[in-house]
Design a protein around this nucleic acid. Structure first.
Lengths: 149, 149
DNA sequence: CCTTGACCTTACTCTAACTGGAAGGATTAA
DNA sequence: TTAATCCTTCCAGTTAGAGTAAGGTCAAGG
C-alpha cells in the first residue's frame, strides 16, 4: 500500500488520523459522520483499520467547508447528493445557499437586537461597589429594552 | 386559596400553567428549571400540584428576560444569585453583561464572515437548469472565500 | 523477544436547553 | 357518569460532536 504524500499510480490511501489531519477534522468526527450516514462506510484494511482514498478525502473536505459556512449536517448531506447527481440543476444548489443565507441573516438580526439591549443596560449601570443595579432591576421587572422573541 | 388576578391580602398563587402563561415560559420549561436547580423547588398544594407566588413569578420572569438577552442558564443562575445577594457590587453584574456582549459580538462577526462567503457563492452561480455549479466546485476543492474557523 | 508508546477499534456517557410522548392521577363542566 | 383538561413522573430525542474506557495492532528500540 502507498501512504501519505506518495502518488503511486495516481492513488493513495490514508488511515483515519492522516485523513483527519489532511481535512482539518478529527478522527472522532470522521467516524461520527460515517455512523450518521453522512458519508458512506469507509473501506477497511486487513487489520480492520479504515482507510481513505482521494475521493473520500474530497468528500470530507466538502463537509468541512460546508459546515464552516453554517450548513447543518443534514444540509451537507443534501449538498453532497447534489454534487454526486449528474442531473442536478445549479438552481437547486443556489436555493440551499440562499436558504442558509436567510437563516444566517436572521440570526445576525436577532444578535444585533440583543447587542443593542445589552449595550443600553451596560451604559445604565455604574459598575462600582454599590448595590444599586439598574441591570438587575430591569431583569427583575422587565423594561422596554427587552428583546422580543 | 386565591388564584390568578385576585390580590387577596396582597398575595396570590398560580399553578404551573398559569405561571407559564404569565411569564411566557412553558410548564415543561418551568419544571426543567426546577429540576436543573436554576430555581428552588416549588411548594406543592395538597394534591401535589406545584404553585407559584409573586416572588417565584418574578424569578421566572427574570430568567425569561435574561435568556432572551443571550445569557446561558448557568449565567442566569449567577445573575439571580447576585440579585439575591445584598452585598453584591453592581460592577459584578456589569461584568457579566459585558462578557455576554463580547460573546454576542464575536458571534455576529463570525456570522458576518459566513454571510459574505455565502453571498459571493450565490452571485457566482447561474442558478439555472444547468449542471455546472461554481458553488459545488468551491465546496469540493476549497477556495479563498473559505471561512477560517 | 519484549516492552513501550502511539495508533486503531467499539461502546458508552456527557454536553445545552429544552420538546415530545406515555402512563396514570386530579379537577372541572356538562 | 363521563369527557376534557389539567397535573404528576419518567423516558427518549434533538445537534454535532467530545471524553473516556477497554481492548487489539503496529513500529521502534533494547
Amino acid at each position: 500500500m502507498v501512504w501519505v504524500g506518495s502518488t503511486y499510480a495516481g492513488n493513495f490511501k490514508m488511515n483515519i488520523s492522516q485523513a483527519a489531519k489532511f481535512t482539518g477534522l478529527t478522527s472522532k468526527t470522521i467516524r461520527f459522520y460515517e455512523e450518521k450516514g453522512i458519508i458512506p462506510k469507509a473501506r477497511r484494511a486487513d487489520n480492520g483499520y479504515r482507510f481513505y482514498t482521494e475521493d473520500q478525502l474530497e468528500t470530507l473536505g466538502f463537509i468541512k467547508r460546508a459546515r464552516g459556512l453554517g450548513f447543518s449536517l443534514d444540509e451537507c448531506k443534501k449538498l453532497l447528493d447534489l454534487q454526486h447527481n449528474p442531473d442536478r440543476a445549479s438552481a437547486e444548489v443556489k436555493e440551499k445557499v440562499q436558504e442558509n443565507l436567510a437563516r444566517v441573516q436572521s440570526q445576525i438580526e436577532h444578535l444585533e437586537d440583543i447587542k443593542s439591549s445589552l449595550m443600553k443596560m451596560s451604559k445604565s449601570c455604574p459598575g462600582n461597589k454599590g448595590h444599586e443595579c439598574p441591570i438587575l432591576d430591569e431583569l427583575c421587572h422587565g423594561g422596554h429594552t427587552e428583546v422580543l422573541q
